[in-house]
Amino acid sequence: MARTHDHPGEQASHDPIRLLDIRETPLSVDEVFRAVGDDAAGGTALFVGTVRNHDGGQDVGALGYSCHPTALAELRRVAEKVVADHPVRALAAVHRVGDLAVGDLAVVVAVSCAHRGEAFEACRKLIDDLKHEVPIWKHQRFSDGTEEWVGAR
């Protein structure tokens, strides 16, 4: 998508990818939201993925995420593609690894654009591609003693 800049305030002179990380420590919605702040952005879309207490009709007792050593590089590739295909002012994405409890934040992504529709589209593309393309795997242990890996190919 070609970018047009009708107003000097729309001209991007910075890298719109402001924050990318995969970490073992708790995530902060405020940190991600602050990272995508941009005076030329009229819309910011934010997605927060949390650990739920069930999946596929089963009660989740414990959950852990792990990742391949290339996961951060793949996350950057996904982010760069979103920036190339959408009029992104700023983008941020962080994903948690390690053991998480029900209610913990697993992933937080945000995108700011000049307009809300663009922000929604770019944010949706970012989270969908992150979940499908970045090698991060979820190990769910259910209360009945069974377990499953999600995302492992």
Rank of each mutant, 00 (worst) to 15 (best):
L130A: 08
L105A: 10
A110H: 03
I136C: 01
V32F: 15
R96V: 10
H5V: 11
H95T: 06
E10T: 09
Q140L: 05
S112V: 06
H132K: 06
V29E: 14
R116L: 14
W137A: 02
H86W: 15
A93G: 02
E148W: 03
N53R: 01
A62V: 06
G56Q: 05
K131L: 12
C67I: 09
A92F: 08
H68Y: 14
L19H: 12
S112A: 07
V82C: 05
H5Q: 11
S28L: 11
A152P: 03
R141E: 13
Q58N: 11
I22H: 00
A101G: 13
R3L: 15
T70S: 12
K125R: 08
H7Q: 14
A84W: 14
H139R: 07
P26H: 01
P26Q: 03
V107R: 03
P69N: 08
R141W: 13
H86G: 08
S28Q: 11
E118A: 15
P16W: 10
A35H: 06
D129I: 05
H54I: 00
V36E: 07
T50G: 00
S28G: 14
R77S: 15
G57D: 09
A92Y: 05
F142G: 01
A152Q: 14
R34A: 15
V150A: 04
H68T: 03
I127L: 07
P8H: 03
V97H: 06
G98D: 01
R124V: 05
E133Y: 09
R153N: 13
R141P: 01
T70G: 00
T70N: 03
A90F: 13
K138R: 06
V150L: 15
G145P: 08
G117C: 13
R18P: 00
C123D: 00
A106L: 11
R3I: 12
W149K: 04
D104T: 12
L100C: 10
F120H: 02
H95F: 11
A84P: 07
Q140T: 05
L27K: 06
N53S: 08
A79K: 03
T4P: 06
D128E: 15
